[in-house]
């Protein structure tokens, strides 16, 4: 015999995940526009690896395949990993990263809902630590005068690691705007000099700033549709803006301006798609603000002083660790217990 309530509102897990995937579309479209279709190949590879690993792990764990394969959560992990690694990477790079994310970061912790760390960020962290060289082959924007590769040539490179005769990998790829900034600052250049380099656009990296804007657009849709809570992106972007703003005001020659931070690297995709993963972020309003602020602070510190060009992934993982503590500390007072001590 069933018990009350007998009715439910139908916004299921798969629909939530699907909406998050839709929200990634503008960013992906702009990615293709500025950097060519190679990213789609990466996404296809990562998604295939994600679903295959998910199926295998479900089988090993003796869980039903259908409900979990169709909840889009593994698919979303795959897409997020593909978006965080260079598109012109050998085929096994997204495959290894995604397989590790799904098998270890997700299923070994108990599967959907039980993983303490964001699987996509764990996958990314494994790749950048294990294969730092392969992780630097970022494509230059297509309008930068270099001879761009056709889709066929890109596919050829991804699967065989060979370029058409007479082409150099260095001519096609570049380091990321954040990486370049860090390297050139070390070499003694000032921020304004560095930003005059051809890879930079109005706000941050040429092309990549527009992709970040695309992710921000999708993120705003998620906010309006109430798929994600507003506290996380606001606290994260706000903290990043405030910190970089203060340092930029004090020492503009050595610290990039806030908008540069916002539209570089994984700041936007992190704010709206990574930090907002409900499973690995706090559940209370106050906790989310703390979590977002912590991630913003760590991202800024890693970018400004750390060994890696971008800090969103490590900031996310470090903050993921604090979630149980944050949740326990920020429990709200229940109805009729306001003004009393818990």
């Amino acid at each position: 015999m069933l018990s009350s309530p007998f009715i439910t509102r139908t916004l299921s897990v798969d629909r939530i995940m699907l909406r998050v995937l839709y929200a990634l579309l503008p960013g992906i479209a702009l990615y293709v526009w500025y950097f060519g279709p190679a990213i789609l190949v990466s996404i296809a590879l990562a998604v295939t690896a994600a679903l295959a690993t998910e199926a295998l792990m479900l089988k090993l764990r003796d869980r039903p395949l259908r409900p979990f394969l169709s909840d889009y959560s593994a698919l979303l992990t795959g897409v997020l990993i593909a978006l965080s690694i260079p598109p012109l990477a050998p085929w096994w790079l997204p495959v290894v990263g995604t397989a590790f994310a799904i098998a270890v970061a997700k299923h070994l912790y108990g599967g959907l809902g039980s993983n303490p760390f964001n699987p996509a960020m764990i996958g990314y962290a494994v790749l950048i630590i294990s294969f730092p060289h392969e992780m630097t082959h970022w494509l230059s924007p297509q309008d930068m005068g270099h001879s761009a590769l056709s889709l066929g040539q890109q596919l050829h490179y991804i699967f065989t690691s060979t370029l058409p005769a007479g082409m150099q990998l260095d001519a096609l790829t570049m380091s990321t705007p954040l990486d370049t900034l860090k390297t050139q600052l070390h070499l003694g250049m000032t921020v304004s000099d560095i930003r005059d380099l051809p890879i930079y656009g109005r706000l941050a990296g040429k092309g990549s700033e527009m992709v970040a804007a695309g992710f921000a657009l999708g993120g705003i849709y998620l906010l309006i549709a109430r798929i994600i809570p507003w506290q996380l992106p606001l606290a994260f972007l706000g903290t990043l803006f405030a910190l970089s703003g203060v340092f930029n005001l004090i020492d503009p020659a050595h610290y990039a301006p806030p908008l540069f931070h916002w539209f570089s690297g994984a700041a936007m995709i992190g704010a709206f798609f990574i930090l907002t993963d409900p499973i690995t972020s706090p559940t209370t309003a106050k906790g989310r603000i703390l979590f977002g602020m912590g991630a913003g602070l760590l991202t800024f510190l890693i970018r400004a002083y750390g060994g890696f060009p971008d800090g969103v992934a490590f900031a996310t993982i470090l903050m993921n660790m604090c979630v149980p503590l944050i949740d326990a500390w920020t429990q709200p007072k229940v109805f009729g217990k306001k003004g009393s001590k818990r």
């Binding site: 409900p278 972020s281 559940t283």
Partner: peptide, 29 residues
């Protein structure tokens, strides 16, 4: 009229329950 609910999935801590709770509990916890 009242379709039986689909099989329960794991909790993803989305806190829609906490947002709906009139007593301000944390139902997911």
């Amino acid at each position: 009229l009242f379709p039986p609910p689909p099989p329960a999935m794991p909790c993803i801590r989305c806190t829609r329950c906490a947002q709906a709770c009139p007593v301000e509990l944390q139902p997911q916890e």
